[in-house]
Design a protein around this nucleic acid. Structure first.
Lengths: 329, 329
DNA sequence: CTTAAATGTGTAAACGGTTACATATTAGTT
DNA sequence: AACTAATATGTAACCGTTTACACATTTAAG
């Protein structure tokens, strides 16, 4: 490993001077700057971030904690975070929590131990205490919070939109699939949908689901049609669940969207590739990731923040699991 | 921040002793061990990994470089790597290369600058030089290599299997979708399929595709049916492309699998949720990730390695885009 | 021409750990 | 009892940077 000392020796100056040219601070004569840069090039020196981090008590690392990268909603989020952080010269220390408080705490600790400048967390468990005594900024992503900076989509509005759209398109016996109770965004969607349906004169059922895993989703789907066979509209808690419902409905020979309309939530990439393609409420996952990254960087740079809570808009994506609405009707 | 010095002061011993109890090496009296541990608990001390890393010239970090976490094949890989690394006490520094040599090199550099103990790379560009002068172990994942340790699935076998299965099930005019030329695993699949079809008396076409992106996939699909409308069997370069083909075929009103059979590659999670569900060649992505992590840790621990190249088996997943074969026929 | 300010560079002390080495005490052997 | 080995602990050097401080030289100002 080539160190700053090697560069200093080769260019005949002190390590302090080398450091100064590398960081472009303090006075340094143009000639020596050139000499040093030449040595740097020749030796292919690049500074040891660990040493730098130790002295500065700040690395160029941020911690990113997700529930599970395997859930198709999160890769987009992660990419948004990474792309934006990369622009700012930051790298990502990455972990999956599985919504497990212990694992979460473990990751949080190692983030701290590695001098990350900040943490972006998309976990949803109740163990808020995990974040209480952190000495560094935290931004919550895909999660609402009043105490901490956070970036999230307007879930309630999304739930309302979904309900309105499916009603407008003529579903009369709707089943709402309510997502896991501890996942706040899922509850917001649910509340939004509930609000709209409660004020209408549409019959509806609520079915609780307790996870977003692929394997479980098919189970709920089967259960749904076994329990409420006359359902003609499903408001799913997310696109995974919606996909499973769609799958099961097709297996049962239901024609979609004629007999059954389905609206998902998230707009994960594969939703558009289903057949029929899935109508859904889109969360701008990539943008959410970017926003979270930008917010964290602003906080880190001590910039004035107008908005500690960033709510991003949600849009209805009108694909083929919903009927076309007659705009003139 | 509470340091080892604080612990030393509180427990009335030297920092060396504290270090010894924390690392459980060297002699230390049981009584002082207890005193120190008490101080550690009371102060909630946890060692600064950065300082440790600086002295030892080795962190507890590994670099993971993927082409794009947004491609649904990779989250599983990543999860396999992470879960296994976590068991060994390692954390993941994560980056997406977009198969861009410059970005790749940039990440590689920062990995090194952060004292990672090793790197797992799933990138496929030709810039092998990027890895030439690395002073730390590298394991390639989802990529074959003779020079470096690597973990990959038996792509050629997979290609052969796909071809055999589709022929056995009666397709007569097959189109092979050949994946991007610079992606070795895609070429292996293609070679395998080519081998089998060449030796059969089945008509077939080869169509080149140059990316695995969702957006592009639908384009290839349209082009496929425009160019070869009588195709009755498609061997897709991966499940994303297969999904797009399936989508387009359904849109054109083809009945599947009666008129058209499709076999994908990878078995990404959503393939089973399509309708009809996608027949495919399964790569054990999660296991591949785990194997790569294990291999890297073995190398790091200087264990004897029997196998520097780990080839994992591939399986045919017989779903509903292929016909049932009459086993007695 | 003198003096102050600006410029340029080096020395050494941090940062928070680990460990080689020295030293002291205790235990075990003849 | 004398000597050696094992146990226990502390001091200081080191890991590769950054930066406060000191000092020397140049430039600008009066």
């Amino acid at each position: 490993m080539v160190t700053i000392r090697d560069v200093a020796k080769k260019s005949g100056v002190s390590i302090a001077t080398v450091s100064r040219v590398l960081n472009a601070n303090g006075y340094v004569h143009e000639d020596t700057r050139k000499k040093v840069m030449a040595a740097v090039d020749e030796l292919k020196y690049s500074p040891n971030e660990v040493a730098r981090s130790l002295y500065k008590k700040k690395s160029k690392l941020v911690g990113l904690l997700l529930p599970d990268i395997t859930n198709p909603f999160f890769p987009q989020l992660a990419r948004g975070v990474e792309d934006e952080m990369q622009k700012g010269g930051y790298r990502i220390l990455f972990g999956n929590s599985d919504e497990n408080a212990e694992k979460e705490l473990d990751y949080l600790n190692t983030f701290i131990q590695n001098n990350v400048v900040g943490i972006i967390s998309a976990t949803n468990n109740k163990a808020k205490d995990n974040y209480k005594n952190l000495s560094i900024p935290v931004v919550f992503l895909d999660r609402t919070s009043t105490d901490y900076p956070s970036v999230y989509a307007d879930g309630k509005k999304g739930g309302r939109m979904a309900a309105e759209e499916i009603v407008k398109r003529g579903s009369k016996r709707i089943t709402i699939l309510k997502g896991p109770a501890h996942i706040q965004p899922a509850q917001d969607r649910f509340q939004g949908a509930l609000e709209v349906l409660s004020q209408s004169n549409i019959d509806f059922h609520v079915m609780s689901t307790t996870s977003f895993a692929f394997e479980d989703a098919e189970k709920w789907a089967k259960e749904l049609f076994a329990t409420y066979p006359d359902t003609d509209g499903v408001l799913a808690s997310n696109d995974i669940v919606a996909t499973a419902v769609l799958h099961e409905a097709l297996r049962l020979g239901k024609s979609i969207p004629e007999e059954l309309q389905i609206i998902g939530f998230d707009d994960i990439p594969q939703s558009s590739l289903l057949f029929p393609s899935l109508s859904t409420i889109r969360q701008p996952a990539y943008e959410m990731g970017k926003e979270a990254a930008q917010l964290l960087m602003k906080i880190t740079n001590q910039e004035k923040i107008q908005q500690h809570q960033v709510q991003l808009p949600v849009t209805f994506i009108d694909r083929n699991t919903t009927r076309k609405v007659d705009e003139n009707g």
